[in-house]
Design a protein around this nucleic acid. Sequence first.
DNA 1: GTCTATAGGTAGATAGAC
DNA 2: GTCTATCTACCTATAGAC
Lengths: 200, 200
Amino acid sequence: MTRTHVRMSKDDRRALILTAAVEIIGDNGFRGFSIKDLAVRCEMTDAGLLHHFGSKTALLMAVLDERDRQDEIAIAAALGDEAGHDPRSPEAVRQILRMLVQRNGDRPEFIRLYAMLRVEAIAPDHPAHEYFRLRDAAAHRMFARLVHVIGDDPDSLARQILAALDGLELQWLRDQQAFDLVGEWDKLADKLLRPTGPRE
Amino acid sequence: MTRTHVRMSKDDRRALILTAAVEIIGDNGFRGFSIKDLAVRCEMTDAGLLHHFGSKTALLMAVLDERDRQDEIAIAAALGDEAGHDPRSPEAVRQILRMLVQRNGDRPEFIRLYAMLRVEAIAPDHPAHEYFRLRDAAAHRMFARLVHVIGDDPDSLARQILAALDGLELQWLRDQQAFDLVGEWDKLADKLLRPTGPRE
DNA sequence: GTCTATAGGTAGATAGAC
DNA sequence: GTCTATCTACCTATAGAC
């Protein structure tokens, strides 16, 4: 009698599932993917998968937690010492934003995951609704603080940057990554960050 | 014996269903809504609803067709005579964009419908995948043509405008419409449309 | 034009064997 | 840790009565 399944350590299995979950949820959304599909992709059964996470919702939360854990490290590095004492120049801000875009461009599956979930989670009964409400508010505050050296309305500028960032990344995804994300962002950021001058 | 249902003309019933469908699909996506929920909202049964559209997919297409029909009229009006012979000034472009944003701001349920479907439809097997591929390509061409009087890279500028437009509208939705969409767009558009100057 | 009834499928989750 | 089997719920769509 042959073994029909592979035994794996708890941590290895969890990591494997979480990686696959990022892609399958990014493709289909939380509502659109099934635990069974994810399980098949991980070469196991749905019951086996649920043993590790308990429920579909708990799996989603685990995915988001894991991403946050990794993002925290990377973003702290990108902000570097700058974050501690406010960047001194628009040029420093431009470089920080550039690093964030570059990082996202290297991981289109995460752009997609967040784009998908953020739209789904506008519905108040979505399990990630509160998560994104808090996360987006925090991002807005962080960006406002970051750019307050540039103009007299950091709140508005932060909104513009977040909107442009989101919009450009999403378009890049839909376009099947057919243009140079970082290059286009640089041009866009130049316009957003340039001090306001008189109209033409 | 009392009547348990309301008889209605074919056209009235279709119109009623389509209006409700915009909201329910915008809330839950195509994958996330059920014909039964929509039917309940229209005070009828799912079988009764399907009598009018045949299938869930056909209903989605009918929603998109109906929107296109109405949008064509409105957008033609917004572009006005300008479209026929290329706007002569950045100011004219600015006004056209402003009208488009204003129109969308008056109909948040459509912003939501399109935001939801556009993300869902990145998946190649989504019934609206091809629809949005064609639609977005056409929008990009139209905007590039519209702004070619402004800079030397209309392709890139059109991308930037579309990205900023999408991103800002989506943020406005998520924020529960807590900021002035048209006002913020004006500020953003100023920066995008201002001719490129030297860095500070 | 709308209903009831139902077919046939898939979903998430649990129980218990190994 | 993973499986098989099963429960319950819900889904889309169709058939046929009214």
